[in-house]
Design a protein around this nucleic acid. Structure first.
Lengths: 262, 262
DNA sequence: CGTGTTATTGACCAACATCAAACTTAGTGG
DNA sequence: CCACTAAGTTTGATGTTGGTCAATAACACG
C-alpha cells in the first residue's frame, strides 16, 4: 500500500466533499497542495509532543491516536484517527503541541505545510468551512469522551468506544457491515478508556459473554448493535454525520434545579 | 452589574487583543457587532442541548458551564467558562447543539447572530484567527480534562480543576493573588470532576488538611501553589497562554514501545 | 524451537460509590 | 427578629468497581 500524491489529493477532496460543496476551482487548488508523504512505523510518533509544528498531518492509511502522559507516565489516549482525519489541525493556531500523535498501526501520513493550508483557506471559503467543521467535530468527540470517562462504567465505556469507531468507519466506507478492524492491543484500549489492562480484558470478556461483540485478533464484530448501543449509552448525534438528530426540548426555559445534578 | 453594549464591545476587543493584533478598522467593525444582551438566572440554560443555534453566546459576567447527560441522567460538566469566553463557538459549524450551556452563577450573556460573526470573520483575518485560536485552546482544555478524568485520582483531579481555574482567572485579571471565586456547589464540582458529591466533599477535606487550599464559601485560596500543582500534576502549558513551554524531545524518533504504555 | 509481546487468570486491596442521616447555612414570611 | 424551609455540606457505614501484583497461557515471528 503505497500512496501516490494524486490519489491522496483525491482522497482529501472526497473527504471534504462529505461536508461541503467544492467548486472546480477549489478542487484544482486542492490538487496542487504540496504534500510530504511518509510511512510511519507502528508505535512511532507522527507528531512529537512539545513540537512547534510547521505542517499539519493528514492520515492516509492506518490507525493513529493522540496521547498525553499524566502523573508518573500513565498514558491517556485522547482520540483515535482514521484515514482522512487531520489529527493536529489545531497546530495551525497553537504554537506548541500540547500532546503527541502516534501511529497505532503502520500509517501513511501526508504532511502539509501550514503556509499551504493557510493559503488554501484564504483562497477558498468552502475549504475553510470544511476544515473548521472538521475541527468542530473533533472537539465534539472530545466532549463525548469526557462524558465517557467521567460518567460511564467500564462496560459502557469500552462498548461506547467500539460503537464510535464502528460508526465512524462505516461513514468512511471502511469495515464490512458489522465487522471492523481496530488494530489496538488491550493495553492501548486501556489507555483510551482510562482503565487498567487487566480490567479491559475482563470487560471485553463480559461484552463477549453477553453476545454483544465477538473478536478474532483485531477484527471485531458487533453481534447485537442495538443491544451494544443500549448498554453503552451510545447516540451517534455527537459525531455530526449528515443524519437527523432529535432535539431534547424537555428542559426549555425551566430551571435546572441544583439537585437535578445529583 | 448591568452591562451596556459599548462596554461589552470593549471587553470583547480587549479579550481578542490578548491573542492577536487588531487594526483600527477591526475595532470599528467589532464595535458595531450586533449584540443581544440577556441576564440568565442561576442554573438556567444559556443554550439548550439539541438546539439549532443561530447565534453564538459570549459570557460577559458570571460563571457558565457546558454539560451533557449520560446514562440515567448522570450529568457531566464538560468545561467551565469565564467572562470573555465563547462557550458555543462551534455552533457556527455544527447544525445542532450536542450539549447544553448553563449558568452556574447569575450570568450576563451577549448573543451574537451567526451571520454577524461570519461577516466579521470574512472582513477581518485577525478576528478570524483570534476566534480560531479560541476554539483551539478550548479543544486543548478538553484534552486535558480527558486526561484528568482518565488518569488522575480524585485529589489530583480536583486540585487540577482548581489550578486551571485559578490560572485562567489570573490571566483575565480576575481573582486576587492566590484567592479566587468559584461559584460552584460541591454537587457541581462533582459533575465536573466525574466523582460523587460525597467523595468531592472528602477530597476537599484532604486538600484542606494538607494545607494546599482553604475555602470560605465559594472563595478559595491556594495556600501552597507549588505543592498543589505537584499533587495535581498541573502544567499550564495546555492553556496556551503567552508564556514559554518546554518541549519534551526525549522521545525523538525512538519507538514508543507498546509496553511503555503500561 | 526460542524469545518477546500480548492475553488471561487468580488473589487481594484501594478508591470511590451508595445510602441514610445529621448538621449547617441562607433565604423567606410572619 | 424568629421560626421555618430548602439547599447544601458533612459524617458514618457498607458495598462495588476497578487497580495492582504476579504468574501462566497463547501467539507471532525470526
Amino acid at each position: 500500500m503505497i500512496a501516490n500524491p494524486a490519489s491522496v489529493h483525491q482522497q482529501l477532496i472526497t473527504r471534504l466533499e462529505t461536508v461541503t460543496v467544492l467548486s472546480d476551482d477549489d478542487k484544482v487548488q486542492l490538487s496542487s497542495l504540496p504534500l510530504h508523504i511518509r510511512h510511519v512505523a507502528q508505535n512511532h510518533n507522527i507528531v512529537r509532543p512539545g513540537e512547534k509544528s510547521v505542517s499539519c498531518c493528514l492520515i492516509i492509511s492506518g490507525l493513529a491516536c493522540r496521547y498525553k502522559f499524566a502523573n508518573g507516565g500513565k498514558r491517556q489516549i485522547l482520540s483515535l484517527h482514521l484515514p482522512g482525519d487531520f489529527p493536529d489541525l489545531q497546530s495551525l493556531h497553537l504554537d506548541v503541541m500540547d500532546h503527541g500523535v502516534q501511529a497505532l498501526s503502520v500509517c501513511e501520513v501526508a504532511y502539509i505545510p501550514h503556509k499551504a493550508v493557510e493559503a488554501l483557506i484564504e483562497a477558498s471559503a468552502s475549504v475553510g468551512r470544511a476544515l473548521a467543521r472538521h475541527a468542530a467535530v473533533d472537539a465534539s468527540i472530545f466532549r463525548e469522551w469526557i462524558t465517557n470517562m467521567g460518567r460511564r462504567e467500564a462496560m459502557a465505556r469500552v462498548g461506547h468506544l467500539f460503537c464510535e469507531m464502528h460508526t465512524r468507519m462505516r461513514a468512511l466506507g471502511l469495515g464490512d457491515g458489522s465487522s471492523f478492524v481496530l488494530d489496538m492491543t488491550q493495553s492501548e484500549l486501556a489507555d483510551a478508556a482510562g482503565l487498567s489492562v487487566v480490567h479491559i480484558n475482563r470487560t471485553l470478556q463480559q461484552l463477549r459473554a453477553l453476545r454483544l461483540i465477538a473478536s478474532k485478533g483485531s477484527v471485531h464484530t458487533i453481534l447485537d448493535a442495538p443491544g451494544l448501543e443500549r448498554v453503552s449509552d451510545f447516540d451517534a448525534g455527537y459525531l455530526h454525520l449528515r443524519a437527523s438528530y432529535e432535539p431534547d426540548s424537555s428542559r426549555d426555559g425551566t430551571s435546572l434545579r441544583r439537585t437535578d445534578a445529583r
